[in-house]
Design a binder for these strands. Structure first.
Lengths: 219, 219
DNA sequence: TTCAATCAAGCAAGCGCTTGAATTAAGCGA
DNA sequence: TCGCTTAATTCAAGCGCTTGCTTGATTGAA
């Protein structure tokens, strides 16, 4: 049905790709429910029937966007290197995560889509699916367990990982509010760099607090 | 048109209240766009015309839910008391904020609605409106400026306030993920209490880090 | 000639909203 | 207490519109 051996008539078989690109933009901007197939097709400059022709239906097109992610969800490798210091690891983490808060173009388009699916699940994906946040969280738990010298990760480490995640997530979820209340944090690359430095400082403070908390009540 | 001097026919004039209650549930669960007036009316057990009769249209009904909030958005008073210590203030803050993560019933229904409007603005409210997060943020900035002994709040304090906010927000925005990855953090009142204690610890660590960061580079 | 690809047109369903009539409780003179 | 008026409220039906999706015809490169 959709063999790609032979390319289409007009110019190229890129209609399918144009649909995927347009869909990622519209879905990311409006969410699954509010996005209309007609708007996607108009943006992709294809006929409304093309979605059915290439993907079957709207839901399948949406799921298609979540099958690409292997490259999009690339975790910072430094955190899994045992020789990385706490500060360097946190620095790598926040540089990586905050790198997408700028440039709302195609690079971060998918990431926006993933975040939206995480915050407001469409119900179309596998329900037990591990989202981006889950991947970051697992990596942070590993990293923190190492630097807190724990054999097994307990609730405290898990919560600490959520703490570090939340510190960055607020800039995505509340991006508009941050920009309005405090312009100068995520407006330019230089500002983001400054913000990352402070994030690392706050994060290491939290990690140290957790370490001290454990020494007080080793239980 | 809608005088409430005389009560209606059947039982009481509570049809309007039933609509408000049902609307807050449906809007909170699905968002403004995905919620349908028919579903709201069905839940409220009223005719579809009742929304127009009592509120005019769907948008006005939605706005109505945001005019009640004075009691819902009650900030913790301890933070504005100059005699409150850093730890006590942080403890009051997180107890207050995390107090709504349990009990997903009517009490937190409105709060869920507010959070959704913050994350995904409907565009129906005044555009320069300060949401809940803005109120909490302003209070935190005041509190932190006091305890960091600053005359004017700069970007660093603002960011620190967002850091403290994000640490709690992750439990709301990523509630489902937290429950799945780390059951035992927000499942019961006792668990929430434990979580709050650790949050206060992490937060004070972040605040102390910010304090030290300022001493190093006073500039 | 073949067939993947595109197109305009339209279908059923759901949406917000409107309408005019039916229902009901309260007010009131006799 | 009765019968009547009045007005608040509820109701079924349906209007115009958008939605996702389908169809049968058309296009054009191989």
């Amino acid at each position: 049905m959709t063999s790609r051996k032979t390319i289409g008539p007009t110019a190229a078989g890129d209609a399918r790709e144009r649909i995927v690109l347009a869909a990622s933009k519209v879905f990311a901007a409006k969410g699954y429910g509010q996005a209309s197939t007609r708007e996607i097709c108009k943006l992709a400059e294809v006929n409304v029937a093309s979605i059915h022709y290439y993907f079957g239906d709207k839901a399948s097109l949406y799921r298609e966007l979540f099958t690409i992610p292997e490259q999009a969800v690339q975790l910072p490798t430094e955190l899994d290197d045992p020789t990385t210091s706490l500060i360097d690891g946190l620095s790598a983490f926040y540089q990586h995560v905050m790198g997408f808060v700028l440039a709302s173009e195609s690079s971060s388009q998918l990431r926006l889509l993933f975040l939206r699916e995480q915050v407001e699940p469409s119900g179309l994906l596998e329900p037990d699916r591990v989202g981006i946040i889950g991947l970051y969280h697992a990596q942070l738990v590993r990293f923190l367990s190492l630097h807190l010298e724990l054999e097994t990760a307990d609730s405290g480490v898990h919560q600490l990982a959520f703490t570090l995640l939340g510190m960055a997530m607020v800039f995505y979820v509340e991006r508009a509010t941050v920009q309005r209340l405090t312009p100068g944090l995520i407006g330019s690359q230089h500002e983001v760099d400054e913000t990352v430095i402070r994030l690392v400082s706050h994060a290491s403070g939290a990690v140290n607090a957790e370490r001290e908390r454990r020494q007080e009540e080793p239980k």
